[in-house]
Design a protein around this nucleic acid. Sequence first.
RNA 1: GCUCACAUGGCUCAGAGGUAGAGCACUUCCUUGGUAAGGAAGAGGUCCCGGGUUCAAUUCCCGGUGUGAGCUCCA
Length: 602
Amino acid sequence: MDTIAIKYNDEIVDLQTAEAKDIHGEAIVLDNSNDALEVLRHSAAHLMAQAIKSLYPDAQFFVGPVVKEGFYYDFKINEEIGEGDLKRIEKQMLFLAKKKYPIERYEISKEEAQKKFAHDPLKLAVMERIADETLSIYKQGDFEDLCRGPHLPSVKAIRFFKLTKIAGAYLGGDSNNEMLTRIYGIAFADKESLKAHMQMLAEAEKRDHRKIGAQMKLFTFREEVGAGFPIWLPAGARLRSRLEELLFKAHRKRGYEPVRGPEMLRSDLWKTSGHYQNYGENMYFTHIDEVEFGVKPMNCVGHIKVYEDELHSYRDLPIKYFEYGIVHRHEMTGALHGLFRVREFTQDDAHIFCTTEQIESQVIEVVDFVDKIMKSFNFDYKMMISTRPSKAVGSDAVWEVSTQALKNAMDSNGLPYEIDEGGGAFYGPKIDIKITDAIGREWQCGTIQLDFNLPERFALEYNGEHNDKIRPVMIHRAILGSFERFIGILTEHYAGEFPMFIAPTQVAIIPIAPTHNAYAERLRNMLLDIGADSEIFSKNESLNKRIRTAEKSRVPMLIVLGDDEVANQTVAVRDRRTREQYSLGETEFLTMIQDKMKEVHF
RNA sequence: GCUCACAUGGCUCAGAGGUAGAGCACUUCCUUGGUAAGGAAGAGGUCCCGGGUUCAAUUCCCGGUGUGAGCUCCA
């Protein structure tokens, strides 16, 4: 395989630069490694710009970086350009790639560059953002662009790419600036990877929880209700309550006490907590008899009030309060998205009040809890420890101890983690849990945050061994994050085919003729007795039609009842996936359902 | 919040400056069927809301609301 760049001092250096500066390092070849894709996609962005320039000669270009999901280029043209033009640009890119232009690099001073691009206000804007005095120019054919690289040696390697979407983007991401046109694309080293990626995108579209949620009647939104306020329909509410019940029991077993704070608290309290100052623009406020109240955006203050209700001894710690806390947050209109981003949601929230010494063991406990749950849903996950940000409260020593506590907890449990330097909350370091779903997408759900700030602000204490007053540490933690978001993720993860233990309906019952309806009813009642929901498909439709409808409803188990089944007290089970059929005795069947539902406990 | 697009029966969508259609779903009837769409009849719409233009607006214009995509990841 051809070398496309080298790795030097942990940086990717393209061959043009390496040659000019006589740098040697480890070869990067054209494959699907992160380093190779970075170079490939960057050059693909340039090739796209070249294609656009050749099709629309008046085009001016801003920036064209590589991003997580491929690459993009922001530009400005006078003509209208839309989705339909992407194919044309792709074609032109292929045409140009076949010319096998070498990509050349040379350096000029900023002054020269400003002269060179004097007619191009976008490039001048780009240069304003660059501090360096020497700039590099990359040239392929008659197309030149200001760019820091790295790039491929030639455009000929860019073969497997696709332009994925076109959208507007503000110059520099600032909505005060003018809107440019942005085209996104993706590129890979080989055809199969590109194909697999496009299939993943198509699969993601099929699994869209907004679509499946409507089909399965899980939830809905209504204009007259307001943006960002989900309405849970019976099927969705059944699913949700199954999840809530399982998780409730799991909390109780792990020593958490259920508590409940009010929806609104006086603004003075939010001033004490710091939310008023730091989070106020995301909060909703109202007045009661001239006193201002804030609708809670988080549950911590309520739990602090629970803690304050009595004096605590060190012997009581750790104290673990949990609540399915309904919170309201003013999200930007444009950020709202199905169940993933709403303005009212319910967190599986808990606060652990403990001693500094207990931090590590408590974190291990939570991580273990997370592990249990995520494994139950077949999610892979990884954890990130976020350290002290530049703007932070608390002493260095406390940060050091607490960050180390998080690391120790992970290390002693043999758990891998990544470090997000400076990514912590202002009040303490945290561990974020990122799960990977069935089609490889990552989602941030749970979080474990150490907090030395709120105990300080509310002057929380407990009595130590020598009757001294000691400040406890608070650990904020959520595992699912919110029921709304998590159920949205689950829906896409399972493509609506939920496992038995959380499915909205466990069994679809299909009586062949009305004479079998009584047996169907009897089975439904027996299923209810073991906590399983069922739906009887007894409408006046053909048997085939009813089986088809039941199959499409994504219920995990189908049973068909006819004369034989009634006579022998059996059920004919039909597997939703394999379409295989087998017969089971009534009690065996009920036991099987019960077993499948008990398969999981967190 | 900003930019652009969209908003028609429960759902998915077609449509025209002269107040509207299809498929699915729904109701009723026929069909009594053993594993992926049997047949017939019928009911159902302030064409998102408010204002403007027009003899006439659901259709054109403006505002609002809602939905979608994008707006951070630095040449």
